[in-house]
Write a protein that binds this DNA or RNA. Structure first.
Length: 185
DNA sequence: CACCTGATTGCCT
DNA sequence: GGCAATCAGGTGA
């Protein structure tokens, strides 16, 4: 599931579910937007310059959660892929609320645009730095594989918010066949 | 040890 | 559409 080329894994994650159960409130989203990040071969990746205190989790085994703080304010979650010591990860950028939508809206303090960004997704699901390094197989944040291919088109584009390697088309978005967005962006 | 920047968000015009 | 907020980690001296 999480083995192989990081871009392939990223495509495969679209349509999978991500669940948490914090504060006794189960929440689940269907992943519909991701970005792939590599290691020494990807200047835009946190792992480009080797292991540091922050990115240690990226060097762990596939299926490890890598959570970091962005802009000193937000949390962003990645799922580590590939082999140990060969860092690569998939940034979770957006999802569709399917369980606990009310809880997520409450955590976000608004009804719309609840899960349509990496920081928003973490806030809605309650993911924080405490979950960094845990496993998506048996940790507090669970990944449930898609049982069947998502009935949607996968759109590819450049990654967002980076300044290096901006042309690498490693952003993947699940869209309805008519081209419209699946979440509330 | 000081400076700089960001895998973002949300509010303002 | 534009820009301020905000701070820890990374980088270089």
């Amino acid at each position: 599931m999480l083995d192989g080329d990081v871009a392939d894994v990223a495509r495969r994650l679209l349509g999978c579910r991500l669940s948490t159960d914090f504060d006794g409130a189960p929440t689940t989203v269907v992943i519909d937007e991701v970005e792939a990040y590599g290691g020494a071969d990807d200047p835009a990746s946190h792992a480009y310059r080797g292991p540091t205190k922050r990115n240690t989790s990226m060097f762990a085994a596939a299926g490890t959660l890598y959570v970091y703080r962005s802009y000193g304010v937000h949390w962003c979650a990645n799922i580590v892929t590939g082999l140990e010591d060969e860092p690569s990860a998939v940034l979770l950028r957006g999802g569709i609320a399917v369980v606990g939508a009310d809880v997520m809206q409450e955590r976000r303090g608004r009804r719309d645009h609840v899960t349509d960004g990496p920081g928003k997704l973490c806030a809605a699901l309650g993911i924080t730095g405490q979950d960094d390094g845990t496993s998506v197989a048996d940790g507090p944040v669970r990944l449930i594989p898609a049982e069947k291919p998502p009935g949607a088109v996968i759109v590819t584009g450049p990654r967002i918010g980076i300044s290096r390697e901006v042309d690498r088309p490693w952003r993947f978005i699940a869209r309805s066949s008519d081209g419209s967005s699946l979440n509330d962006i």
